[in-house]
């Protein structure tokens, strides 16, 4: 058997018999945040196989009970595209001309948005699903989040495949920066996760948080240039530019089809901020975990 992982609120002391010694007390384990962070990553590495097993478990379980399987990954994105293509072409709404044919524009936009929304949702979903295990067994909680990230990556990969026939059909050329599309997606996931993870400690206690996420993401989609190009002036322009998801959506899409993007520097800043928040979120999550478990009841 492997050594027991060292979770928080425990200190690691070597002793003569080389038995790991843990010490639990009321004291906060945040005396050395760098050490705690090291422990979190050690645990993630040690339990990497568990993350993988959990990821494949959820994947298998999800599709074993379904005939249409992966179709359900495409369905929402395709539905959004069709609806907005219809609304635009029948001039129910009037959307400014886009850099690439409108259906492809909406398709790429909603693909990126779906990834962002899933990344915000995932940490709380993963934690809720893992609660029954976490409240009884000592498992690094981040493994469940990591397997959730795996799920997001898998789904975005499958969903991206739909771009191939659409781009071929509409004869849209790819920009030279097209491979950066995946970098853009990675930054989107990272930023989404950082927000989601930070909300877990409160969200695990109060269901209001998941409601807020739901409503917030609903609003956010229309406040980001997902189905329309970024407005150039006026109040709408300011509102859209305040949305942290705006640079992520615009830049990732531009990298695929345009090559350069006016929002690139903003995107950099958001991604750096996202990474810092993510690290902070990991620490907060670890520290809060025993408090969350004790309030879950037996």
């Amino acid at each position: 058997m492997k050594d027991q992982s060292v979770l928080n609120h425990s200190t690691f002391v070597a002793d003569s018999e080389n038995l790991p010694t843990v010490h639990y007390s009321f004291e906060s384990e945040l005396r050395r945040p760098d050490k705690l962070l090291a422990v979190i990553f050690q645990d993630l590495w040690k339990f990497r196989e568990l993350s993988w097993v959990l990821f494949t478990r959820d994947l298998k379980a999800q599709y074993r009970q379904s005939y249409l399987g992966y179709f359900w990954l495409f369905a929402p994105v395709v539905a959004t595209t069709i609806i907005w293509f219809f609304l635009n072409s029948s001039q129910v709404v009037d959307i400014r001309e886009t850099s690439i044919p409108y259906p492809a524009y909406v398709l790429v936009g909603s693909l990126i948005w779906t990834v962002f929304a899933a990344s915000v949702h995932q940490p709380l979903l993963s934690f809720s699903a893992a609660q029954s295990v976490l409240s009884k067994l000592r498992v690094p909680p981040e493994t469940f989040i990591l397997s959730g990230v795996g799920k997001i990556l898998f789904e975005v990969f499958i969903r991206s495949l739909i771009l191939i026939p659409v781009f071929l059909l509409l004869k849209i050329p790819l920009a030279v920066t097209a491979p950066l599309f995946f970098v853009g997606l990675a930054c989107t996931i990272l930023t989404g996760l950082s927000i989601g993870l930070l909300l877990v400690p409160v969200g695990a206690l109060y269901t209001d948080v998941s409601r807020i996420i739901e409503v917030g993401l609903g609003f956010g989609m229309y406040l980001a240039p997902v189905i329309y190009p970024p407005p150039v002036s006026g109040f709408a322009s300011r509102l859209v530019s305040l949305n942290p998801a705006t640079p992520l959506v615009v830049v990732t899409r531009d990298w695929l089809t345009q090559g350069h993007s006016p929002y690139a520097s903003q995107m950099m800043m958001i991604s750096i901020a996202g990474s810092l928040v993510l690290v902070f979120g990991l620490i907060v999550f670890r520290i809060a975990l025993p408090r969350l478990i004790e309030r879950q009841g037996m």
Binding site: S25, F26, P290, E294
Partner: peptide, 10 residues
Amino acid sequence: GLIKPDTGSI
């Protein structure tokens, strides 16, 4: 080690 003691130590 799932929950922390409020007093004392283990």
